[in-house]
C-alpha cells in the first residue's frame, strides 16, 4: 500500500510541478503579442499599463527567469491581478471554488449510486429485457450533449413545471445542475460496472461461492459486488476530474456562481492572469481529490494494499 500510495503521491507532485511550468509559459505560446491581445478588449489601456503588465508577467525576460518569477509569486500566494478590474486572482477563484466543488461532488455521488445500481442490474439480468432497456438508456446517456440536456431540463422543470429555480444558490437550485452533470457519468459508470460485474460473474471464484449454498444476497454482495467494484472505484478519480470539467458547461447554463463561469469569461476576454490561476487551481484540486480516492481504492483491493503492484 505504501509503495502504491507513495507512487501516486509522486505523480501528484510531478503533475502540480508540470502545471506550474505549463501555466507560467502559457503566454509565451500565444501566437502574436499576448499583451496586445490581452488589452485589445479594454479600450482605454495606456502604454504604461501594457509595459507594467509585460514586466509583471516576466515577458521581458528569458524563459527561465520568467518561470522563477512566476513561481516565486505563487509561493507568496500572489497569483497576479486580472486585466479588467485589476482584482487579485486567487481570492476571486477561491470565492467561487466551493460552489464548483459542491456541484461536482453532489453530481459524483448521484452518478455513482445511479451508475452502480444500473450496471449491477444490467449484468445480473444479462440477456433479458431489463438489460436491454438499461443499456439502451446508457447509450442515450452518453450521446446527449450535457449542455442540451441542461437546457431541456431547465425548460421543462424550471420554466414549464416550475419545480426548481432557474438560477440561484442553495440545495434547491443545485438539483437540476447536479442531475445534468451526473447524467453522462452515471451512464459511463453504469457501463463500466456492468462489464466489470459480467467479468466477475464469469469468474471461477463465483462458481465456488455459489457451490457453498449461501443465500443469494450474500453471494452477490460479499463476493460479486465487492470484487466487481474494484475497477469502478479505481476509475473514480478520473470521474471526478470529468465532473469538474463538465461543471464548466453546466455552471454556464444554470448561471451557477462557480469558477467555471469565471473561466469561460476569462478565456473569452483573454484575461491571461485569470486563466493561469484557474488552470492551476483546477489541476491542484483534481490531483488532491484523485489522491484521496486512491486511498479508498487501495483499501478495497488487498493486492494493491500489500504493495504487490503488477
Amino acid at each position: 500500500m505504501q509503495s502504491f500510495l507513495l507512487r501516486r503521491f509522486g505523480v501528484a507532485l510531478l503533475t502540480v510541478w508540470v502545471t506550474t511550468i505549463a501555466v507560467a509559459l502559457l503566454t509565451r505560446l500565444v501566437p502574436g503579442d499576448p499583451i496586445e491581445i490581452m488589452f485589445a478588449q479594454s479600450a482605454g489601456a495606456t502604454r504604461e499599463q501594457m509595459l507594467a503588465m509585460q514586466a509583471r508577467l516576466g515577458l521581458d525576460r528569458n524563459v527561465v527567469a520568467q518561470y522563477f518569477l512566476y513561481l516565486g509569486n505563487l509561493l507568496q500566494g500572489d497569483f497576479g491581478r486580472t486585466i479588467q478590474g485589476g482584482q487579485p486572482v486567487l481570492p476571486l477563484i477561491m470565492q467561487r471554488l466551493p460552489n464548483t466543488l459542491w456541484l461536482a461532488s453532489t453530481a459524483l455521488v448521484i452518478a455513482s449510486i445511479a451508475g452502480v445500481t444500473l450496471g449491477f442490474f444490467a449484468a445480473y439480468k444479462k440477456g433479458t429485457w431489463v438489460e436491454h432497456v438499461l443499456m439502451t438508456s446508457t447509450v442515450m446517456g452518453i450521446s446527449i450533449p450535457p449542455f442540451w440536456l441542461g437546457l431541456i431540463l431547465l425548460m421543462v422543470f424550471g420554466m414549464q413545471l416550475g419545480w426548481f429555480p432557474v438560477a440561484g444558490a442553495g440545495w434547491h437550485a443545485l438539483v437540476l445542475p447536479a442531475v445534468t452533470l451526473a447524467a453522462t457519468n452515471a451512464a459511463i459508470i453504469g457501463r463500466l460496472t456492468r462489464s466489470s460485474m459480467l467479468e466477475v460473474f464469469e469468474q471461477e471464484f463465483m462458481r465456488t461461492a455459489w457451490s457453498k449454498g449461501l443465500p443469494k444476497t450474500t453471494v452477490l454482495s460479499r463476493h460479486a459486488l465487492r470484487a466487481g467494484l474494484v475497477p469502478v472505484v479505481s476509475a473514480m478519480g478520473v470521474q471526478f476530474a470529468y465532473m469538474m470539467g463538465g461543471a464548466i458547461v453546466v455552471e454556464y447554463i444554470f448561471s451557477w456562481n462557480g469558477m467555471g463561469t469565471l473561466a469561460v469569461d476569462a478565456i473569452l476576454r483573454r484575461d491571461y492572469p485569470l486563466i493561469q490561476g484557474f488552470i492551476l487551481v483546477f489541476s491542484v484540486v483534481v490531483v488532491c481529490i484523485s489522491l484521496l480516492l486512491d486511498v479508498i481504492y487501495a483499501a478495497l483491493d488487498p493486492r494493491i494494499r500489500q504493495g504487490g503492484d503488477s
Partner: peptide, 25 residues
Amino acid sequence: MRMLDVLFSFTEILIALACVAILGP
C-alpha cells in the same frame, strides 16, 4: 508513462481549454 500520468490528471477538458486560451476562440 509519466507523461501520461501527468496529462491524465490534467484531464482532457482542461487541456482543451488551455489550447483554446492560447490559440484563441
